[in-house]
Computed example of a mutant assay.
Amino acid sequence: MSESKDKKKDIADNPRKEQECEEEQKRQEGIKVLAPSPYFANQEGVKGGEIKGELVTFAVMSSNKIEGKIYTKHSVLLEELRKYLPEFFVLHNFGARQTKGFGSFTIGAIDGEGWHVDENLPKAFAERQVYLLIGDSGSETIEDDVDEAISKVFDLIQDKHRKIKTKSLREYLGGKTERDLCKSLLNHQKPSDPGSYVFARALLGLTNVYSFRGKGKKKVSIRVKYNRRRSKSQTNTIERFPTPLLYKPISIDGAYKVYIIAQPIPKQMRGAAFDFCAPQMKQVWVRTSKDFKLTTFLSSKDCAQHIKKL
């Protein structure tokens, strides 16, 4: 007897398993694997144009309502949860790559009582610095069938975040950045006053490897390492720093809007020094800005074509 027949016979002989199987099928009905995946942490899985299935992470979307139950003997706690939980979901995402919009949920109802996100957003955002992402056409909403809309949402987040943390930030600072310094060194040019450069993009998210184009437009990977001595800090090491921009896609009446919630930049990231190392260039160090104000930057003319303040 084949394996599939064995499985069917086992289910038929066991009513409980049959019920569990039916429940699982219902749960799966509204779940789709989005392809091409908008989950753009797939560098290793798509190197050189070759897709390595075991390394590629797919985005999964559920159109079903997700129900959760909270059990407690404390009625006061339940009241507090009813009061604050909907706003908590508006202000936070969950899981991997949550700052880029993944793991975004909003509550539709508690104990059968509807919670209308569009009516409650002003209250939820009242004490936060919140901005709205704008498409290249100037549109603030994305309307399409669900699959297409979701893909457009994450394409928009990826594109705008890249532009904000590179071109907009360089224009706002108006000075020489780590990009200018590394390009000079990779092209075997001696930069004047290396100490006058600023590590700009680190304050909008730090990783330990950056790519720059050197001679012949070839991309070169440069490792970044925290320099505690030059930072004059008690912080032993800084390896990564998630972006302080939390992208929050929210569906209202079938149309998506992407909100950006600005979060504080840790004190240890201000004025921190980092070494830039690559075999193709001389090692240098660059410091982050001490007095960079995130909300001033986001409200500046340099960001005006990408976002607007609520």
Rank of each mutant, 00 (worst) to 15 (best):
L169V: 14
A255Y: 01
F154V: 03
F297R: 00
Y226F: 12
Q19D: 13
F58K: 03
K218D: 01
W115L: 09
E171S: 08
C21Q: 15
K123V: 09
V56K: 09
I252E: 10
L132S: 01
R27T: 06
S62R: 10
E113Y: 12
S139C: 11
P122Q: 10
Y247E: 04
I265S: 01
T296H: 08
K225R: 09
K190G: 07
K190S: 07
A272F: 04
G195E: 15
S137C: 08
K293R: 13
G271C: 02
L246C: 03
G45W: 06
Q19T: 08
L173G: 02
L298G: 00
K290C: 07
G205T: 02
I238H: 00
A126I: 11
D193N: 12
G30A: 01
L310D: 04
T207S: 04
G95P: 09
S137L: 05
E80D: 15
Y39V: 09
P15M: 10
V284L: 03
E171K: 15
A124H: 05
Q98L: 00
T243H: 03
A149S: 13
E54N: 07
L204N: 11
K52P: 01
H74S: 15
G195T: 08
E22I: 08
V56M: 11
Q19Y: 09
R228H: 00
G108P: 06
V258R: 02
K165P: 08
A126L: 08
R230M: 12
W285M: 09
E29I: 03
S151C: 05
I238S: 01
P266W: 01
I66W: 12
D144K: 13
T57K: 13
E54I: 08
V153R: 10
I66A: 12
S63A: 07
N227L: 05
L133T: 06
F105K: 02
F125Q: 10
I66F: 13
T295F: 01
K267Q: 09
N187H: 15
P191R: 05
Q280G: 03
K32V: 11
K160C: 05
I307L: 14
G114E: 14
T237Y: 05
S192H: 10
T166Q: 14
D302A: 06
K167E: 14
A304M: 06
Q305L: 04
D145E: 13
P36V: 05
L77E: 05
Q234D: 14
G271S: 00
N14R: 14
E87K: 00
I70S: 09
C21W: 12
T141F: 12
I260P: 05
V90M: 00
A273K: 08
E23D: 13
P38R: 01
V76K: 12
Q28D: 09
V153G: 07
G195R: 11
P242Q: 02
K309C: 06
Q25S: 11
N236R: 06
V286C: 07
S139G: 14
K165D: 07
S289A: 12
G135W: 13
Q283N: 14
Y131M: 11
G45P: 10
L55P: 06
S168F: 06
G53A: 11
I265L: 00
K165H: 10
N120K: 12
P15V: 04
W115R: 12
Q280W: 07
S137H: 10
A202L: 02
E29V: 03
